[in-house]
């Protein structure tokens, strides 16, 4: 595709994005906000999966840490919301280092299982430490985000806040992946002995990526807390971790921008399916299984193959 056409397409996309809140119902905008949050959180998991080949089922833990940090800091301590964001990301980073350093020595299934165990431990602690998290009753009254007095108190406003942040982190991630760290990660994933010989400190790289993933999860969690104003343990379960993992799987793990597609899938498909009545959860599971089975490269891979097929037909 030549440069002009590409730029034009990009412009159209941006226009569509910008105009969406004016055309769509509030309910759909709400879903798009969630899709934005999941893009941020899912990106972290996607980087670990796509670039490092690591299955991370602990993202709900860091999502929760970000949410609870923001909630606790603004509601109990009365400090400005930026403090909450920073506290959350700091706590997540520290925990990611402390836990990641030993755990990332594991590989494959064992690592996946360890991260799942982390998610569960996190869930139990969120329940138990109700002096911090409010337990089942949760923490309410979280103030909406405001910057210089401009309050983000409607879904439309949060939409215009969340997506630029999502695009920003996607850009940074894309940069990372195309640069030397990305090369090092892929070397580590595809030919570990060679990478080691070339002096790639694999363990440090893995831990660094785990920390980045945790911080992205925390960022998404903090934004979530300020958006919904009330959080409770039920939002930070193993199911949430699985949902975060689904995002890069559905998208096609190696794609950075494809995370958007994965996040949209995870947000909108359950909504679509709920029209079918009580069987909707079964259908969602089946849809997931079908994507994994039929589209090993995810939706992006599938779209790619379709594009190539069409190109061949037309040539």
């Amino acid at each position: 595709m030549n440069k002009l056409r590409r730029s034009l397409l990009l412009l159209l996309l941006v226009l569509a994005w910008a105009l969406a809140p004016l055309l769509l119902s509030r309910h759909l905008i709400d879903l798009f906000v969630f899709a934005g949050l999941f893009t941020i959180g899912g990106l972290g998991v996607g980087l670990l999966l796509g670039q490092c080949g690591i299955v991370n089922l602990a993202q709900a833990l860091f999502y929760g840490i970000g949410a609870y940090s923001s909630a606790y800091v603004t509601v109990q301590l009365g400090l400005p919301s930026l403090t909450g964001f920073l506290a959350g990301m700091l706590a997540s980073a520290l925990i990611a280092i402390a836990v990641g350093w030993p755990v990332l020595r594991l590989t494959g299934f064992f690592l996946a299982l360890a991260t799942l165990a982390l998610s569960l431990i996190g869930n139990v602690l969120f329940f138990e430490w109700d002096w911090l998290t409010g337990g089942t009753l949760g923490i309410g009254g979280i103030p909406k985000l405001s910057i210089f007095g401009f309050a983000f108190d409607t879904p439309e406003r949060v939409y215009y806040l969340v997506w630029p942040i999502a695009i920003l982190v996607l850009l940074l991630a894309d940069n990372l992946v195309r640069g030397r760290p990305g090369l090092a990660m892929r070397a580590m994933r595809d030919a570990a002995p060679a990478a080691e010989v070339l002096g790639v400190d694999m363990h440090r790289l893995k831990t660094a990526m785990f920390v980045i993933c945790a911080m992205l999860g925390s960022l998404a969690g903090s934004l979530f807390a300020h958006y919904v104003s009330y959080i409770s343990v039920q939002s930070f379960t193993v199911e949430r971790s699985i949902a975060f993992l689904l995002i890069p799987v559905v998208a096609g793990s190696a794609s950075v921008w494809g995370i958007i597609a994965g996040a949209l899938f995870v947000t909108f498909i359950p909504e679509l399916l709920s029209g079918f009545g009580d069987i909707h959860q079964v259908l969602f599971g089946l849809a997931l299984v079908l994507v994994v089975t039929l589209l090993p490269d995810g939706l992006i891979g599938g779209a790619d193959r379709l594009a190539q097929l069409l190109k061949r037909r037309m040539a």
Binding site: R6, L13, A261, L299, I300, A303, D304, A307
Partner: peptide, 11 residues
């Protein structure tokens, strides 16, 4: 941009 396009076409 191509990748972003592809995301949206898929969706």
């Amino acid at each position: 941009a191509l990748q972003a396009c592809r995301s949206l076409i898929a969706l």
